[in-house]
Amino acid sequence: MPDDRIRNKQYQLHEVTLKNRQNLEVNGVLNVESFDAHEFVLQTHYGFLAIRGENLHIKTLNLEGGFVAIEGLIYDMGYFDEGVSPGEKAKGFFSKLFK
């Protein structure tokens, strides 16, 4: 059964398209919370989306249309809820990965 947060937001378009692990397009973006060459944090209708990689940069940004395009080598992506900071989520993910 779908989560209530997702069921209540089905009318909102949210799409993530990754091409060749180097070109990422995201629809349904409300805000760019933070970014640098190694990590982007985007606020979407479905929670925060963290994108990690190398040499990341914004190719296209249109917050009025809810669209962001990012170029660079993508290592991983993941969603987290508002109650969890991106640093805490990344720390938990990477600590499990490298045990």
Rank of each mutant, 00 (worst) to 15 (best):
V68Q: 05
Q10K: 06
S85P: 13
Q12I: 02
Q43G: 12
H45D: 08
R5A: 11
N55F: 11
L18V: 04
H38P: 05
V29G: 05
K91N: 15
E88T: 14
E39C: 12
F48T: 05
K96W: 04
P2E: 07
F40V: 04
N23G: 13
F40C: 04
G53L: 09
I74M: 02
L24A: 01
E88Q: 13
F80P: 10
D81Y: 11
Y46F: 10
E15L: 11
S34V: 03
E64L: 09
G53H: 01
L30Q: 11
R52H: 09
Q10R: 07
L97N: 03
S34R: 01
Q22I: 03
V29N: 09
N20E: 15
H14Q: 12
H38I: 15
A69T: 09
F93D: 10
E71K: 02
L73P: 04
G47Q: 09
E25M: 11
Q22Y: 02
V41D: 01
F80S: 12
N8Q: 14
V26Y: 00
R52I: 10
Y79I: 06
D81L: 14
Q10F: 08
K59L: 02
G87C: 08
F94T: 06
T60G: 08
G72L: 04
E64G: 06
N62S: 05
E82S: 07
N55D: 12
L73E: 08
G66E: 08
K96A: 14
F67G: 00
G65K: 08
I6Y: 05
L24R: 00
G28M: 04
H45N: 11
K19W: 06
N23P: 10
S95Q: 05
E88A: 15
N8T: 14
M77G: 09
S95M: 12
K99R: 13
G65T: 06
A50Y: 00
L73F: 11
K91C: 13
L42I: 01
P2W: 03
L63P: 03
L42M: 02
K59W: 02
F40N: 02
G72I: 01
E39D: 09
L61Y: 07
G92R: 08
F94D: 07
V29Q: 12
E39G: 05
N8E: 15
T17M: 15
V16C: 11
L42H: 00
V29M: 07
V32E: 01
T17H: 10
L24D: 00
K91G: 15
E25R: 03
Y46C: 06
K99N: 07
S85M: 10
T44N: 07
K9N: 05
L49D: 06
V41W: 00
P2K: 01
Y75R: 13
N27E: 12
G78I: 11
E39H: 04
G83C: 14
L73M: 14
G78N: 15
N55C: 12
L73W: 03
Q22A: 12
Q43L: 10
P2D: 02
E64Y: 11
N20R: 14
L24V: 02
H38N: 13
A69W: 02
H57V: 02
D36T: 02
F80T: 10
F35L: 09
D76I: 08
G66V: 01
V29E: 11
L18A: 05
N62W: 04
V26C: 03
L42Y: 00
H14G: 10
L97D: 07
L42Q: 01
E15A: 02
T17Y: 08
I74Q: 00
P86L: 05
P86W: 03
G47I: 15
D76A: 15
E33R: 07
F93S: 09
L49N: 09
V32N: 04
L73S: 11
